[in-house]
Nucleic acid binder design. Sequence first.
DNA 1: AAAACCCTAATTGTCTGACATTACTTTTTC
DNA 2: GAAAAAGTAATGTCAGACAATTAGGGTTTT
Lengths: 251, 251
Amino acid sequence: MNIDRLGPPLDQRADLSAQIAASIRDAIIIGALIVDERLPSEAELSLRFDVSRATVREALKRLAAQSLIRTQRGATGGAFVNRISFEAAQAQQITTSTLLLSMNDVSFETACEARYALERACAPLSADRRHLHHLTVMRDEIERQADAGLTDEAFCASDVAFHRALVDGACNPVLSYQLAGAVEAMQPLMNMITFTARSRDAIITLHRTIADAIEAQDGQAASAGLTALEAETQTLARRVFARRSGSPTPL
Amino acid sequence: MNIDRLGPPLDQRADLSAQIAASIRDAIIIGALIVDERLPSEAELSLRFDVSRATVREALKRLAAQSLIRTQRGATGGAFVNRISFEAAQAQQITTSTLLLSMNDVSFETACEARYALERACAPLSADRRHLHHLTVMRDEIERQADAGLTDEAFCASDVAFHRALVDGACNPVLSYQLAGAVEAMQPLMNMITFTARSRDAIITLHRTIADAIEAQDGQAASAGLTALEAETQTLARRVFARRSGSPTPL
DNA sequence: AAAACCCTAATTGTCTGACATTACTTTTTC
DNA sequence: GAAAAAGTAATGTCAGACAATTAGGGTTTT
């Protein structure tokens, strides 16, 4: 790797690892370092940047945390530019989205609205293109949700699985990736809700409506089902939160 | 901080920094460490986890790379749990999305479809709630786009600004955050397109249609405009990539 | 009494040198 | 020729040191 491809010289004697990480990150983003290319060894980078190996390592760990590089030990090892997979990107996005919601006092209403708006965007595509296994997953999850012995957490998890199958039915990996954050990040908020047998029934009925619409390739009906489900969820949440603020409730 | 809040003991003598980072990350996610809480000092963490300070530092740098913590020097300094801001989350999401698209041979068609599907999801909300300044930005950007002296890059940048104003009009920060990745990550792909005066005119006309619909609070018309704009963009891209067909087109 | 100054302690940031571990390559041995 | 052994280069970890920064307390000065 050419030294010219590693950005401007480092001026300040502080935050060196951040500067070095930014330098390498930029090189990756602009394409000066291509996928699977091996970076210089830590020893060589420490010479190039004129810092200690410890500092270089801190910079590399920053990049590794963002899945930008991977490292391998051994004689032919080193740090390699990572091809960011949809899976890794999704995992990061879910973590970030979840923390964002939990730390910023985002109302249930706002998050829920965003989620269903985005899902409605997928519905027509999913109705068009869904494969058999998407329908199968949706049906299976509905089946599971009907089990009265399910805990609220398990019910929510199944709900997420149902909706992910709906989104994946659009057969657009970019869409699936973007939606993963919105859908999964809602789960902790949904877990705050106690689902009565009655509200579960309402949700399951709407899930059936949506699955039927997707199977019948009726995107408009699927969207309508999602709208109804959003309304149901919002009502449910309002009731739960109202009850909690009215009387001191144990967790 | 209680040692019990830092996860299971570390077994393997490799990837220690990753394990420690995961341990602390989990503590933050489940809420055992709250925003602005100070982590134990590096020296104390190295005792708790029974590793060297260098290893602890590598773990902390991983967390810092994800904006999960910030550090401060000095007597009362240390590492503090960061409140993830929408801005920081957006920046990360844009970086990840951009790299994801450039590294994974995602077709222009797929990315474009995802983007416009998501934008259509925002259109009805934006039509309902947009404020004056959203409309102003949209109009201003359309004005700018009409300047024939604009480079293709500047035209694309203005296009992004227009669409972000449209999305922000929905007044839902979660939606804005999710969409930022989809819209901005497209920019490098859009930059591969040469915009003739004629194609610019077509785009600007559609932008006007959309802005008019948003101003008139007609969500359906705005959606229709977006659909037309998507078709126009796809046609444009197909033409450009077909002309370049000498070599198999990446992206 | 208030302000300016200095000193100290705590903490992160960096450096150095060493050893352990890993995995590929080369050489040796059978 | 195949298996075993040695060599080698890289990351992973450790220990100890010093520099830089910052808050707080104590002292002196005004």
